[in-house]
Design a protein around this nucleic acid. Sequence first.
DNA 1: ACCGCCGGGTGCC
DNA 2: ACCGCCGGGTGCC
Length: 881
Amino acid sequence: MRVLKYFRAPSSLRHRSSPMAQFLRRFSSSPMANEDEFQSPVEPSQQQSQDCVSESYLIGFVIANIVGLKYYSGRINGREMVGLVREPLNVYDNNAIRVLNTRSEQVGHIERTVAAVLAPMIDSHTIVVEGIVPNTRSNSNRYRIPCQIHVFAKLEASSTVKSTISRGGLVLISESDTSFGLSEAVVVKEQMGNGDKRSVDKIFKLVDENVKLMGKLVAAEPPREVIKSELFAHQKEGLGWLLHREKSGELPPFWEEKDGEFLNTLTNYRSDKRPDPLRGGVFADDMGLGKTLTLLSLIAFDRYGNASTSTPTEEPLDGEGDKIEKKGKKRGRGKSSESVTRKKLKTDDVVGMNVSQKTTLIVCPPSVISAWITQLEEHTVPGILKVYMYHGGERTDDVNELMKYDIVLTTYGTLAVEESWEDSPVKKMEWLRIILDEAHTIKNANAQQSRVVCKLKASRRWAVTGTPIQNGSFDLYSLMAFLRFEPFSIKSYWQSLIQRPLGQGNKKGLSRLQVLMATISLRRTKEKSLIGLPPKTVETCYVELSPEERQLYDHMEGEAKGVVQNLINNGSLMRNYSTVLSIILRLRQLCDDMSLCPPELRSFTTSTSVEDVTDKPELLQKLVAALQDGEDFDCPICISPPTNIIITRCAHIFCRACILQTLQRSKPLCPLCRGSLTQSDLYNAPPPPPDSSNTDGEDAKSSTKSSKVSALLSLLMASRQENPNTKSVVFSQFRKMLLLLETPLKAAGFTILRLDGAMTVKKRTQVIGEFGNPELTGPVVLLASLKASGTGINLTAASRVYLFDPWWNPAVEEQAMDRIHRIGQKQEVKMIRMIARNSIEERVLELQQKKKNLANEAFKRRQKKDEREVNVEDVVALMSL
DNA sequence: ACCGCCGGGTGCC
DNA sequence: ACCGCCGGGTGCC
């Protein structure tokens, strides 16, 4: 019987999997022997649409044994997900289903009786399966372990699937018995409409934010011996990122180290073997930002390199030292025949570092080859980087020949042709690095090219593309497979961890994808990049308070310190968070102008007791009123100026509709601080004073100019003297301050425009248009609230920016500057921060710096969920207690 | 004995 | 695998 089966195998395959070959593979522990165990990203039979995944729902699960454990090195601990991969070319059973662990190591097979039922349905895309191993402790059999196979199918196919499974003699444990399954299916269906497309736009959101907020990008200079062109700032930052990704020894995303063990938090895989760091990633800058030059700069380091730059220094390169070292003879011949002097080579040899392979393989579409050549000629010192064209006509079949070059250029087509050529030198070579240019061409639809590049051997892998996602997030799967980013490089894991949750509108899918891309990819868009912009300078202008202001400020600060110290002493600081914020707010307002803080609010001790305001709604209302005419803010849910303002017990502010909807939909928690929150914790804000601008105007007239206002005025006048046509923007976070500024500036002869959160969208665009209008000449000042100037607003008509008060968050300040310093800006830009001396404002600056540093040194710790914008420690620093 | 039964060899697909 | 299954050895009580 067994003999018969053996002969049924296609003869073309027999040599690959002859019993002897199997025997060798089984009992050889050499890593090389596992090379052909590597899973290609696309099984030949599964190339078509992946859409079925998103419309599927869980029909139920069957229990099946994973068998053959003793023949494979992959281990599992139980309570973890496994990858199920069809193996149609298995000689013993074309229904075979392989079981892989998080590390892509094979654990075993699904027992054949079960595979026989499931495999045909998998192949016809009728079902999708996911495997979970419940627990191995109770059932510690060395030869087989049970596994839950979850079966997903389209709603309309479910009855067929169910009967096929039971006819095959399997027991389907179905949740629809409890009527839960079906209702879930309906929900899933409804959410389908806006599933993938909209999410895709968000995938890279975190990438941007991460880069911006964490300031992770550290510029690096390419070696001058190789690269003769000066890089743009964003290219230097890109280079710094590439270097960082290649050298960093940090754990890949979703891995944690826990008492010497390494845990994959998504699959629950545990092992004491450290997962390899991901040396490489997705370089996804927009087209036209100079990715090619940046990559050439990276390659230049292989030759003249080293980190005499500002790049972070990390662990030594190459964890695969042993493996490659064994092939010493190859390296010797390849490199010593090169006569070019290499300073770095020596150093490396002394340190004992592995330098065996310095060749980078670049794969690109044929049309792009000439671009690489042009860039090489244009930007590199002639004769330094040696390039071999492995494309077209005559190509060497000698690996050693290829090793002589720094760069081997080839095309996807060439590789595809060589797929079946065993002795292809490109396939035999162990590259230092592989760069897939225009990597989106290997997306899932192009199975052959995907397969080929995935099998290439290299310790650093880069996917380079300006359009990482064309047909949906599934495109990214091909890149993961190429990067060998475990476990996502196994389709089954990708599907269950990312694709299915995403398709079902499950937040986990998107957030996982965001985290994933944030750590392994870099994407800057053309719009945000700063190519060829005139320089910008940032200055700080310190303002001395007048004696009168000083006296009031010192008095208030003294009082504030007392109040806060009291709260700290009796441990109720955080319970009185709202009080503290309003105290700090008052102090900050005083630095701008005393009239921001009306006389009745000039004492903290009278109106604010030690008890929290939350127990006194009338005080809360006062706070609301103060906030409302004071700080400019957005509803964090809809990210626009709030309508029908609601303030919560925990002092967060939302639109009425937004927060009510949120509370209804999810748990009764505040979306910002996650404190418990019910409808009774919501307080209405009093209706906004409709003619506030009129009364404010009167106020301004009656009061004299504050020190800061005077300082601003003289700065503006000095700039006007220099160039009467300079347009300026003044940002303040206090709406009232912007109103106060109008009168004195008008009086000094400036044309005033105003942009604030209370304006309609239409009005705002009108103001911005007017400000940018070249016919509006003379000294023009735009008084703007930053939050009102949403993203994408263009204020490049201005060349001076005044930040009238400092923001907590340095990124917000940066955003403000970006409105002016962006593409289209023709003049040099000067930014001036206005800071009151010896005041809380100086400490806000320090806080800014601290936050920046924190982000720099520990960017991997993304902001903790409960971290407030300002914490206890910050309060202590701000109050200089 | 074209059976039953014994006990060794063996073990994924 | 302290199992099941296979197939050879064996054969009254």
